[in-house]
Simulated assay, not measured.
Amino acid sequence: MRHEHLHIDYQVYATAADLPPDDAALLREAQSATALSYAPYSNFHVGAAARMASGAIVRGANQENASYPVGICAERTLLSVAATLHPGETIDTLAVTAAEIHEPISPCGLCRQSMLEFQNRTGRPFRLIMGGATGPVYVLEDARALLPLAFTNEDLRR
């Protein structure tokens, strides 16, 4: 038996104000998207915003449902909107945040897999900015870093 280690490279910014201007603006878009959240059960209001390759900004917010787990996370809402309104276009950067949390939030497993699938489908990785209402901000150069042992459709066909 041998031991292996997984390593995730990411940048840490003390606050959103320390981000490059374009990234700070995108995180503000994600923060404003938290107001679009429908979260009467969890009170966990999540917003996401993406800058498409064309420069267009797409936003998404989590949408809960009394018939749990029928709701949809902000990231998957955003990916659906992006694929529908900008078919075939790649995402440059995606930002995600929550209204009530003061530490960076990280996408759930379903969202991580969905981001990987979007990247595979469009043929280009995208950057991921994770923030909270205040506090530090994490930036990954490739969203796939959050799912290092991911599987793809090609893996399923083998």
Rank of each mutant, 00 (worst) to 15 (best):
H3L: 15
E4F: 08
E4G: 04
H5S: 15
I8P: 02
Y10T: 00
Q11G: 04
V12I: 14
A17M: 14
L19K: 06
P21N: 07
P21E: 15
P21V: 13
D23Y: 13
A24D: 10
L27N: 08
L27D: 08
T34N: 10
T34G: 04
L36F: 01
S37E: 04
A39T: 13
A39Q: 00
A39P: 03
P40K: 04
Y41V: 05
F44A: 02
F44D: 12
V46C: 12
A49M: 09
R51N: 00
R51K: 06
A53E: 11
S54A: 03
G55K: 07
A56T: 06
A56L: 08
R59S: 12
A61W: 05
Q63G: 03
P69R: 09
I72D: 01
I72S: 00
C73Y: 07
R76N: 12
T77F: 04
L78Q: 05
L78C: 10
S80F: 09
A82S: 02
T84V: 02
G88N: 02
E89I: 02
D92P: 05
L94S: 05
L94K: 00
L94C: 06
L94H: 07
A95E: 08
A98F: 11
E103G: 03
P104M: 13
I105T: 03
L110D: 09
C111D: 09
C111G: 03
S114I: 02
M115Q: 05
E117H: 08
F118E: 11
Q119M: 14
N120S: 06
N120R: 12
G123I: 08
R124I: 04
R124Q: 15
R124S: 14
I129S: 05
I129V: 11
M130P: 02
G131Q: 09
P136V: 00
V137K: 11
V137G: 08
V139Q: 01
V139A: 08
A143H: 06
A145S: 13
A145N: 01
L146N: 03
L147Q: 00
L147G: 02
L149T: 03
A150V: 01
D155I: 01
L156W: 10
R158T: 05
